[in-house]
Nucleic acid binder design. Structure first.
Lengths: 347, 347
DNA sequence: CTCCTGATTGACATCGGTGTCATAGGCCTC
DNA sequence: GAGGCCTATGACACCGATGTCAATCAGGAG
């Protein structure tokens, strides 16, 4: 029983006494089949516990109920939540989800996409390493939706947040608390998203007439140990910052422990991207609620719309911006110059 | 250029002036091809930018360089880290990873596995909802590795931690701090893992001669709001607990904010499973370092071994136990209230 | 009763590769 | 120089489905 091979359409046809093609018609709800025939074929399928073979089907039909998802790293909490939401919605619509991580390697990213295309996926959701990451690739007209970062491909759409504006809001929020020395911490400027957040930070400073200081702008926070040393360096400046703007969740996940270890929880902090426990820390962390669930939902629905009704009209246009906002929790509302409030305990 | 169809093996063969089969041999590194022929075919492949079609290949060959991964929910931080590690190692070995979430629905879990089998995956890594989740399914002899929970399938292996023993260690640790009223908080007892952790908790109480109290054993912590209300209820008991043992990360992620909101950070806590920020909270959270990266690594290597060398010998046996240990950070070392040390008659 | 039409159905090619087996030479042996 | 053997290659079937197009058949029209 366990060793028995699965029934094929041929077996079903033989069992029902019809041709393979007729069985295929029943399988595909072709209306040109007599009711009686349909009933007996259906009965045979049940009797033999028939399951269609997706491989053979997609080989011949050139399509497949699978959606490929390419992300930077599935282990990132933001990405995991994003993918979870995408998978949930696509699964409801009967699609399988294939996930692969690019780890920021362009070559790997392109080879994954190529593989998905070869596999005849029905559509792609891609978190591109750059605007032109898929430049010149043969996509066979597949619907592509880029997430979290703007991408470009013929007829594609991108679901993003307004990184620049939100970074400006976050930074302005700190300025409004009286801060003028605000450190910007991010990882390398290889991704457009990161660049836009830098621009938004600079926008806010300019709006407030504050001159930006290169010493306070760090784009080398690549991992937790590095974040720790960057914090040390920044604190040791002649004019150290009184506030920090963290440009993404991964960096935040390094900054928070770093501040705790250093005993510098007096430092104001606004983080781009919410994260688990942010509300339970002391102080609780003020964040830009860059919601992966919402972005994932919009991306999945956008792709589904194109899968169901392939049209030249792009619902929502080539770039769809998902709203996000600042959540005040405490760390972002710490005023500048704590010594003016009470005698300093530290040092 | 973008509209041009991809080259097939037939095109390559024609271009090189050989038969399709010979081109296929070159593609598969078959040694029985003359060097000159090999070189010209290789040149043609490059010239035509040939990429093999994985669909056609797996249809005929009955195998595929894809590994299916079935987990409970890819959005869970523990799961995301586990999958990330598995994906990284399998990708290095040239395998694609297919991920799908079962959301604890047996029916969905089985249909995903069935789909993977139909797709001719080379192997499966499954986080099973129960020991017999795959019972009776035709697996076509696929190598299967279960992760985090023991599963059963012909010739399968499971990579797990000793949940029962670790739960005992965690609970004993709290008892060693003088606690005798220790609450156990977990989600529903549908997964063996959870059941084993309950048993370990009871083992520790028994070892210490403490009678277990059903009021302190809660298996209904299904989501964050529920965790909050469970905490309220437990605190309101006539004899409230002085310590909590959290049976998994998802529950911990509810307990910690709950304790902070209630201002009950005096409560001792040991959490099964490490999580981001655990070391930065006040107090920092003592955990059982149930490392997803380590489990994922062992699972991936175990599967790879079977993929490369299909043998009846199971390397490491049917059940592989990954070590884990307790990390003291503070919350688990909060002593019981002084008065509970003095003699008192319970019940 | 024959012809036409539309509804059903099936034979066969096909998707892009791989497995089996046969075949054509080249080289060695006796 | 014939037989044997090994190497390199190709012809062909096949994996499990779908697309094309022709064939069959019943019923209504003339």
């Amino acid at each position: 029983m366990t060793a028995m091979k699965d029934a094929t359409l041929r077996d079903v046809a033989a069992h029902a006494g019809v041709s393979i093609k007729t069985a295929s018609r029943v399988l595909n709800d072709d209306p040109r089949v007599a009711d009686g025939t349909r009933a007996s074929v259906t009965a045979s399928m049940v009797a033999l516990a028939y399951q269609p073979d997706p491989t053979a089907r997609s080989l011949r039909a050139g399509r497949d109920r699978t959606v490929g998802v390419v992300v930077e790293s599935i282990g990132d909490v933001f990405v995991a939540a994003l993918v979870a939401q995408i998978e949930r919605l696509l699964a409801e619509a009967g699609y399988q989800v294939l996930v692969a991580s690019s780890y920021r390697e362009l070559e790997r990213e392109r080879s994954i996409v190529s593989n998905f295309v070869q596999r005849r996926c029905a559509g792609l959701i891609v978190m591109p390493s750059s605007l032109d990451a898929l430049q010149g690739m043969p996509l066979r007209g597949l619907p592509v939706v880029f997430v979290d970062r703007e991408g470009s491909a013929p007829g594609s759409q991108s679901v993003i947040v307004n990184d620049r504006d939100l970074a400006r809001v976050a930074t302005s929020h700190l300025i409004a608390q009286g801060h003028r020395r605000i450190a910007l911490m991010s990882d390398a400027l290889v991704v457009d998203t990161t660049r836009h957040r830098h621009e938004g930070y600079l926008d806010a400073l300019r709006d407030a007439g504050i001159e930006s200081d290169p010493e306070l702008i760090r784009d080398d926070c690549i991992d937790e140990p590095r974040v720790f040393s960057v914090l040390d360096e920044v604190f040791a400046l002649d004019e150290p910052p009184t506030a920090i703007f963290s440009a993404n969740t991964r960096v935040s996940l390094g900054i928070v422990p770093g501040l705790h270890v250093a005993g510098r929880t007096d430092m104001a902090l606004v983080a781009f991207g919410d994260f688990p426990m942010a509300a339970s820390l002391k102080p609780a962390v003020t964040v830009i609620d860059h919601s992966p669930a919402r972005i994932g939902e919009v991306a999945a629905r956008t792709l589904l719309a194109r899968l169901i009704e392939p049209s030249d009209q792009l619902q929502g246009g080539p770039v769809i911006t998902v709203p996000a906002h600042l959540i005040e929790r405490g760390s972002g509302e710490i005023p500048a110059e704590p010594r003016s409030r009470s005698p300093r305990v530290r040092r």
